[in-house]
Amino acid sequence: MTIDSKDIYTEWGCTLLEGSFDGILKYPKRKAVKYNNWAEADGIDPDLSIVEFEPKTVKMEFIMKADTLEMFWSRYRKFITDLSAPGYREFDLIPGMTNRLRFNAGTAYDKFVPFNAGENASVFEFSLIEDNHSIFPATPSGGINLRGDYSINGIDFADFGIGSDDKQEDILKYPAIKTPFTDGRTTDLSTIKTQHKEIKLSLWMLAGSVEEFLNNYRAFFTQLAGAGNQELYIKSLDGIIQIYYSDCPSFSVEIWREDQIAVRFTISVVAPVVSWVDAGGDIRYRVLKDSDLGLLADEKGRIIVFN
């Protein structure tokens, strides 16, 4: 593992703790998508021509060995000085993956044990920022046998080594209804239109090597987070829906060995138009109305509507 081509153990006496891979691999959040939200149409009309990501905070936890407290502070000060030098640092911590990060000057030491005399080891955590996420197109290889639940742009999730926890709540939950037009006295209930919908998928991923994992990881997010709408097939709906990538709220490495990788992560996607439910379409409604009192309501204040 190197930083700016310097071995972190030889240069600073450090070893990166494995939990730090979570932040490195967590895919960045997409910048807010601009869209039109027409009252007379279902969902939204987003501009998906450009894909940009928000800066990502990466927390890394290190353990540093030193024979004495003085040696620790000498190594630690040098490490801080080298990491916080002007410009970006190039982190090569996962074989085949380079991350350009800058030191977060406002870092908070959530974990900081300066010196444990019993083990001559210190544990501390740094916060770094990735400003420009690099995209590496790839083709899936390897995979698993659990097929058919999901596919993205015609490629089964299994081809990426990805399976699902089979939680369908966000998919099956009925979408919100757009607020009907009103002029303050009357409310137009002649049509019912649905809002767009965010869907979260709880996923896991397996690979037989670091190389296979990194290839399939890049291939999956290349398909998911590309420009324009993506086609997501969902078995429980028996159909394809149009979606675009929004965020990767969580990412956790559970097993990291040369011959076995296992991770869990969550993705958030947005369906601009909920096409798999019938929200009433253009059904005409009749609303009870009095010429003097306006719209009539029941004893609970609910507008009286007949279809």
Rank of each mutant, 00 (worst) to 15 (best):
Lys29His: 10
Ser151Asn: 10
Asp247Leu: 09
Val113Gln: 10
Gly280Gln: 05
Pro55Ile: 11
Val253Ile: 11
Lys289Arg: 10
Trp256Gly: 05
Asp188Val: 00
Ser127Asp: 15
Tyr244Lys: 05
Pro249Ala: 13
Ile199Phe: 13
Ser246Glu: 12
Phe160Asp: 00
Lys289Leu: 03
Gly43Ile: 03
Ala85Phe: 10
Asp131Tyr: 11
Ile283Leu: 13
His133Ala: 10
Met60Val: 08
Thr186Lys: 09
Trp73Tyr: 15
Phe103Val: 02
Asp259Phe: 07
Lys197Trp: 06
Ser291Phe: 05
Phe221Cys: 00
Asp131Cys: 05
Thr222Phe: 13
Gly208Lys: 15
Lys26Tyr: 02
Arg30Phe: 08
Ile243Met: 08
Gly184Glu: 02
Leu206Val: 11
Gly96His: 01
Ala39Asp: 11
Lys300Asp: 13
Lys34Asp: 10
Ile129Gln: 04
Gly118Gln: 14
Val273Asp: 03
Trp276Ser: 06
Gly143Leu: 07
Ala262Asp: 12
Gly184Phe: 02
Ile261Gln: 10
Phe220Asp: 02
Asn216Gly: 07
Val305Asp: 03
Ala41Gly: 04
Asp159Arg: 15
Lys65Asp: 06
Phe251Gln: 07
Ile24Trp: 03
Thr107Cys: 01
Ala32Tyr: 11
Gly43Arg: 07
Ile80His: 10
Ala158Ser: 15
Ala39Tyr: 11
Ala41Ser: 15
Val269Met: 06
Gly19Asn: 15
Cys248Lys: 03
Leu17Gly: 00
Thr194Glu: 00
Leu232Arg: 03
Pro46Thr: 07
Ile261Thr: 08
Ser20Asp: 11
Leu189Trp: 09
Asn215Ser: 12
Met1Gln: 11
Tyr244Ser: 07
Leu69His: 12
Phe220Ala: 05
Tyr245Phe: 09
Leu25Tyr: 04
Ile303Asn: 02
Thr2Arg: 15
Leu214Asn: 14
Glu40Leu: 10
Ile177Cys: 04
Leu288Asn: 01
Phe103Thr: 04
Thr266Met: 11
Leu172Glu: 07
Glu211Phe: 06
Ser275Trp: 05
Asn120Glu: 14
Glu70Arg: 12
Lys178His: 13
Pro95Cys: 02
